[in-house]
Computed example of a mutant assay.
Amino acid sequence: MNVHNGHPGLVELLVDGKETGHSALRGNRPQLVSGELPTDPPASVTVRVTPGPGTPRCTAVIDGTETMMSPRAF
């Protein structure tokens, strides 16, 4: 996940460096971004993004299992 703050803000879901989903950032409210993982067959993934305040938090939901994603600075 890339979270671009600013006006307007943007949240991008990247898989292997390629954008597979995106959404406009709506303040600090949590939102969902959906995409696909390049598995055989492709698997759907939904990421719950909480942009702030502070460091953004992201949780991936794959096949009903939630996984907290570690924040990384670029």
Rank of each mutant, 00 (worst) to 15 (best):
N5P: 03
N5F: 14
D16E: 12
L10I: 08
L32M: 13
P56H: 03
T39G: 12
N5H: 14
V47H: 02
G21M: 03
L37I: 06
M68W: 04
L25G: 04
G9D: 07
G64N: 05
P30W: 04
S23R: 15
H22M: 14
I62W: 02
G54V: 01
D63K: 15
R72V: 12
A43M: 14
Q31I: 04
M69Q: 04
P56A: 06
M68K: 15
V3R: 06
I62H: 01
G64P: 10
A60C: 02
N28A: 10
T67A: 14
L13N: 01
H4I: 12
G52C: 03
M1S: 10
E66N: 05
A73T: 03
P8C: 08
K18G: 02
M69I: 11
T46I: 12
V47F: 02
N2R: 14
M69F: 03
R72N: 03
A73D: 06
G27N: 00
M69P: 00
L10T: 09
P56D: 07
T20G: 06
R48C: 03
L10G: 00
T59H: 12
M69A: 08
D16K: 01
R29S: 06
L32T: 09
I62F: 01
N5E: 12
T50H: 05
V11E: 08
H22K: 15
T50G: 09
V47S: 11
H22R: 15
A73C: 02
R26D: 09
T55R: 12
R29Q: 07
P38N: 08
T55G: 02
K18F: 04
A24G: 03
G64V: 05
R29C: 00
D40M: 14
P30L: 10
G27P: 00
D63Y: 07
P38I: 11
M68C: 06
G64A: 09
T59I: 15
E19N: 07
R72E: 12
P8S: 07
V11H: 05
L37E: 14
G35Y: 00
Q31L: 15
T50N: 09
R26I: 01
R48T: 10
N2C: 10
E66D: 12
M69W: 01
T65F: 11
L37W: 13
H7V: 15
S70G: 02
L14P: 02
G52Y: 02
L13W: 01
L37R: 14
G17P: 06
A24C: 00
V15F: 13
L10Q: 11
D16I: 00
V47P: 05
C58T: 05
P51R: 02
R57A: 10
